[in-house]
């Protein structure tokens, strides 16, 4: 039966060519169905993926190129999902990278069937998801903001942030603290004291 348009929109469309590909077994979080499509997978209105196992590539080095050539320009995001299933990857991966790069494809490597399937699922699921998760987060609670600020100083960890916060009370006080005061904080060794002190007291621009 022909799947309804709505169903098709919410599912990964899989090319018949992929029939028998073991990764299909691992697609569990998203529905998938076969459809008459040019790429191996259609993951959204403008995104598609080609599956390539490196082992297969070793046997048929031109396969990827011909598959990419068939793809329509209508896909904005063209993914080459590369299953790294050989030991000696450098040469084949180099070739695949080159082909993908020169033909406007985003190369994604995965190392297991599960991971390959997970990429397909996630890209489908996240089709309309905003990028918040990978953008700079503005966590609103004070402590995470304070740590994100102080952790810019190398090797300062969360415990140190707490120590500094509770010793000096405010960030302004931390910034104004002297070396001796910093040195009195438990857990903050000589090097960290110096780093912190330099960060606060050395001028932003070193040469004027």
């Amino acid at each position: 039966s022909i799947p309804s348009a709505a169903q098709a929109r919410n599912a990964i469309l899989v090319s018949r060519r992929q029939q028998g590909n073991p990764i299909l077994k691992h697609i569990r979080n998203v529905r998938w169905m076969f459809g008459d499509i040019v790429p191996d997978y259609v993951l959204g209105q403008t995104s598609c993926a080609l599956y390539l196992s490196l082992r297969y590539h070793l046997l048929h080095p031109d396969y990827l190129y011909f598959r990419i050539r068939e793809l329509l320009k209508s896909f904005h995001l063209r993914i080459v999902l590369c299953h790294v299933d050989v030991e000696d990857v450098i040469k084949p991966l180099h070739e695949v990278t080159k082909t993908a790069l020169l033909h406007d494809c985003s190369l994604v490597c995965a190392w297991s069937l599960e991971e390959c399937a997970r990429y397909l699922e996630t890209i489908k699921m996240y089709e309309h998801k905003p990028a918040d998760d990978i953008q700079e987060r503005t966590d609103n609670d004070y402590l995470s903001r304070l740590s994100s600020v102080l952790k810019t100083v190398r090797h300062v960890n969360k415990t140190d942030v707490m120590t500094l916060g509770s010793t000096f009370g405010t960030l302004a006080a931390i910034m104004g603290s002297s070396m001796e005061e910093l040195a009195c904080c438990p857990g903050i060794g000589e090097k960290k004291v110096k780093r912190l002190y330099d960060a606060f007291h050395e001028p932003f621009r070193r040469t004027s």
């Binding site: 995104s47 985003s106 996240y126 998801k129 998760d133 990978i134």
Partner: peptide, 10 residues
């Protein structure tokens, strides 16, 4: 994987 996916999508 989720983060890489978001990256390629965006």
């Amino acid at each position: 994987v989720s983060r890489m996916s978001l990256l390629v999508l965006h």
